[in-house]
Nucleic acid binder design. Structure first.
Lengths: 239, 239
DNA sequence: CTAATAGTGTCTATTAGACATTATGTG
DNA sequence: CACATAATGTCTAATAGACACTATTAG
């Protein structure tokens, strides 16, 4: 009979076949009326030269959790930690990676375009890709499919939460927020309905200041209350 | 310059540290007015002797996907494939398993108690645990936390879907379904509201037959339409 | 018969949609 | 001034909650 201590002392993880494990964050932002995803050019095999998600392997010495891995990979590419990150889906099978049975833990993250624009523009291998330009690219692995899953989840979030606000700068106007929701949902939304919902949910702080979205007239600026990402409306906007 | 073929030919997965990866399904059912979870007694280190989720490692030769792993593990314990399974969450960190950095891909599954009652009762190391009895057990790893996450997700599902119906036999009565929802939500639900929603959603088939829930009088029997699990109400029941 | 449960009718309250109206600021 | 956009008012439609009511069946 072996004790747990003896078992652990002789346990060798490498003695077993284990699937490859990667963490792939899907970072979205909103700029100039467009939804954009952060992609990086792969500089090593496999799928070298293709564009793909800014993911990578868990660094067991540095990452306390899977989410930390996702945040670390994003910070390496953008210079900042995204204000919103959420687990999306985990996909694993024998075919998605030529190296063998492989698993990816995907996260959806959101951030303001302005908060990393300079860093992204300064390098060649990191780029914001407009949603409509994705079809022209041949992405690595199953990353295109993963992006589609994230996009659909984001559409759902726009129907019952204010999470899309994390694609905007810290202070934003209600017309800006409505535009993002409309883009995600894929149709126009009634202004009064939208504002009533947001008002009554109490998820925004009225800063008292005014500012303008690019090219628009002055409007009141709002901020997200700290845990607004956790708020869900009990009734959806029409899908 | 190495080609992709050369890279793959010499690639050795075991040369890299990879986190431990397990798949852990959380199977629920409904019986005698109680919500129950399927647990198994661990017969090997680590955490030997404790009760835990009926999970395990990916078998690269048999499992086409992570979901297949979850279904296979459940089938080994219950003798059947569950009619409902959905990915829940993936948890990974350095502390949850003494063997090292470890990841679990969790699934929530539902099935009728009757469909595996005999098989489960015939063995010593598999057991349906009543929700209220969980506190008395010291579960392996972080399985108790994972069960709590699944339980909360199930509560949400009860507010906006008919997914809880998968805890019932193929043919069930509306009072039975309402009871499950009430148990999950944690309060009584208005009968008329509940039936109106379900009627209008068109997710059930009226079998024309009548049957009785244990100890109740005759009532009409319904079945789930094929893709009813995908249907979401656009308005929640009150949380 | 009586009590419990299955099933329906109907009123109210809430809130999203539609759309008109007013207010404000820019060219 | 004229026009676009910000912000608000108000009516309608849809549906969840409340609860009374009828129908059916077991003991």
């Amino acid at each position: 009979m072996v004790t747990e201590e003896e078992f652990l002392a002789t346990y060798d993880r490498r003695a077993f076949d284990a699937p490859l494990l990667t963490v792939d964050p899907i970072l979205w932002t909103y700029d100039k009326g467009e939804l954009k995803v952060l992609l990086v050019k792969r500089f090593a095999h496999p799928e070298m030269g293709k564009w793909g998600l800014p993911g990578g392997f868990v660094d067991e010495t540095r990452d306390a959790s899977l989410e930390e891995t996702a945040i670390r990979k994003l910070a390496e590419k953008t210079g900042v930690r995204p204000p919103y990150i959420e687990q999306l889906i985990t996909t694993g099978n024998a075919y998605r990676d030529q190296r063998g049975w492989s698993v990816t833990v995907c996260f959806t993250a959101l951030m303001a375009y302005q908060d990393c624009q300079q860093r992204v523009e300064s390098v060649e291998d990191v780029r914001w890709i407009k949603e409509e330009d994705l079809n022209a690219l041949d992405l690595a692995f199953d990353h295109r499919t993963l992006i589609d899953v994230a996009r659909e989840r984001l559409r759902q979030k726009a129907l019952y939460s204010v999470v899309p606000a994390y694609t905007l700068p810290d202070k934003f106007t209600l017309p800006q927020l409505q535009k993002v929701h409309e883009l995600l949902i894929g149709r126009e939304v009634d202004k009064k309905s939208f504002r009533r919902r947001v008002d009554q949910a109490g998820v925004l702080i009225d800063t008292g200041e005014e500012g303008r979205a690019p090219g628009q007239r002055l409007a009141r600026l709002y901020q997200l209350k700290p845990r607004s990402n956790e708020f869900n409306f009990s009734r959806n906007l029409e899908g």
